[in-house]
Computed example of a mutant assay.
Amino acid sequence: MQLTVDGVAVHHVAHGTGRPVVVLHGAGVDHREPEACLDAGLAAVGGLRRVYPDVPGHGRTPAPPALRSEDDVVAVLTGFVEAVGGGEPVLLVGHSAGAHDARGVAARRPDLVAGLALVCPLVAGGHPLPAHAPVVRDDALGDDEFRGYFVVQTPAMLDRHRRFVEPGAALADAEANARIGERWEIAGLDDRDAPPYEGPVLVVAGRRDSTVGYAGAVGLLDRYPRATLAVVDGAGHALPHERPDVLAALLADWAERVPAPS
């Protein structure tokens, strides 16, 4: 499916019926990664229409030259969320850079976001990163990209990487993402005088995440007065693949905290 926002045709897939929950993937992949990792858990909550867009510059959504910063991407995603919700607030989930974008949408239009879930969020500010330390290590399995992403290095995780990560990576628009990446910080997102987002928030980080770390995620508690924080052992940046049952339980609790539409 496509939904055009500000001249950008946003490709997306959707499952189920009910209140919309929009799920934003991270950098360099497409909607298939969070769809594979999160959809079963969100479906089990019940009453949710799960919507997975390709963020501009990824998958089948282009990033035209007019998009020159992450603020421009957030503007498109905000329009997408508004259209999907029909003007009513939706549940909004993001992984990695998708969590960064989700925070931007909630900051700009909190009226469109009933609840915010941030999984392994990219957070500006130069936070310390733990060393890459696999829980299950196999130097003969996969390639450097796989072994650098997963801390659970098993044949099952390699299969997931090949099925749900690599196909999206092959479609990413490197030129567009490099252009946008030069201005990847979202203006005003962490200004201390900015009003906090007041809805229910879930923040989940991998204890062994050597890509964005967990310190930035912990620091988000100061920004969100209704946040639940979980730093999950035995998982890295690929936490949605490595600890799906834990993530599903946390998402279910978060979804229950989001108030029903009035």
Rank of each mutant, 00 (worst) to 15 (best):
G26E: 07
P200N: 06
A124D: 15
V45C: 14
L38F: 14
D245F: 00
A252L: 10
R60K: 12
A227I: 11
L122K: 15
V23Q: 02
H241D: 09
G234Q: 04
L158G: 02
A107D: 09
V10S: 02
V13G: 14
L77M: 15
E35S: 07
D143T: 13
G234R: 07
P195L: 02
V10K: 01
D101Y: 15
R183V: 05
F164R: 00
D54A: 13
V204M: 03
L92W: 04
G219C: 11
T154K: 00
P121K: 07
V246C: 04
A14T: 12
V123R: 10
A230N: 03
A156T: 09
R68H: 12
R50A: 13
P89K: 07
R162C: 01
E166G: 00
G206M: 03
G18P: 07
G125I: 08
F150Q: 03
G199A: 03
D173H: 06
H100Y: 05
G125W: 03
E166I: 12
H127T: 13
V10H: 02
W254D: 01
H12P: 07
L239C: 08
Y52I: 12
R68C: 10
R207W: 09
A215R: 15
G115M: 05
P240F: 08
H25Q: 11
D144L: 12
V113H: 06
P128N: 11
Y52A: 10
D233K: 03
D173C: 03
D245V: 11
A97S: 15
A169G: 14
A40T: 15
A156Y: 00
G219S: 13
A9L: 00
V5K: 02
P56K: 12
D30C: 02
G148C: 12
G47C: 13
V84H: 09
V51K: 14
L118V: 05
P89I: 10
P62F: 12
D71Y: 06
P89S: 10
D101R: 14
R50T: 15
A97P: 00
H12G: 04
L92S: 05
P65R: 13
V84F: 11
D101S: 12
P200D: 07
P128I: 12
A97T: 14
C120S: 15
P134L: 14
